[in-house]
């Protein structure tokens, strides 16, 4: 029994590594550029790698660099980081519904690896997601993020311009690749994504909300409205 459990854990971990490959590719150009920018901002190699090791959050790490360069105080940068990452409350709560039961220690450990990208991969998997699968996805994404931050700082350059530009599509293409199979199976998924995408576009392009807040607002409003409308329609007998 134990041997069987261990081997299924191993295969779950491996399929996690496999599923996380596209994140690793997508993080590469962003992390390389982060390393380069960190160097030009005056951070040492150790500081750059340490930030990627401990923080592991693309958007806030980028913003922190521009704030450091502007001479903004530490407390303000930390507060700003918190604001940018508030959306992870929502993702963490949603992920909890998806994950198998496990010890609080393991959950607290893999919670560290939650990013927009790892969440998308783990939460759109069919059925329940296992702890080993989550560790696999997160480990390969984390590895790519940390190592490429270091390489970017070391070589002091990012990818060739044409590749850099083309690779900026990578994470978006991954999101599309994760979304479409579910859209094909369920019209509800289509409404959810369409409503949230439209709302987020209106909120950001009109300048009503900053990107971090508008993702939260669009996601919550769409998740609630679609649920209420479908419930009402079911009650009405459609």
């Amino acid at each position: 029994m134990q041997a069987a459990a261990a081997s299924s854990q191993r295969s779950e971990f491996k399929s996690g590594l496999h599923a996380g490959m596209s994140i690793a590719v997508g993080y590469m150009p962003i992390a390389l550029t982060f390393g380069l920018l960190a160097k030009t901002t005056g951070l040492s190699l150790a500081e750059t790698v340490l930030m990627s090791l401990l923080v592991f959050a693309g958007a806030s790490q980028y913003i922190s660099l521009s704030l450091i360069a502007a001479g903004v105080g530490i407390a303000v940068i930390i507060f700003n980081t918190f604001i940018v990452n508030i959306r992870h409350f929502l993702m963490s709560a949603s992920l909890n519904e998806k994950m198998e039961k496990d010890s609080l220690g393991k959950k607290a450990l893999y919670a560290f690896g939650l990013t927009d990208e790892t969440f998308s991969v783990i939460a759109t998997r069919e059925g329940k997601s296992t702890t080993s699968f989550a560790f696999g996805v997160m480990l390969i994404a984390y590895g790519s993020w940390v190592i490429n931050s270091g390489i970017g700082h070391l070589i002091g350059a990012s990818l060739p311009v044409f590749l850099q530009a083309a690779m900026s599509i990578a994470l978006y293409a991954m999101f599309v690749g994760l979304l479409i199979p579910s859209v094909k199976k369920s019209v509800k998924v289509f409404y959810l994504a369409l409503t949230a995408g439209a709302l987020n576009s209106i909120l950001t392009l009109s300048g009503a909300l900053e990107a971090g807040w508008s993702i939260i607002a669009a996601t919550l409003v769409s998740s609630i409205i679609v649920e209420v409308v479908l419930l009402a329609r079911r009650r009405a007998g459609f």
Partner: peptide
């Protein structure tokens, strides 16, 4: 909460 992953994908893409 189960709707959130798909809504988030929509908002992350557009």
């Amino acid at each position: 909460l189960r709707n959130i992953p798909y809504a988030v994908l929509g908002a992350l893409i557009f």
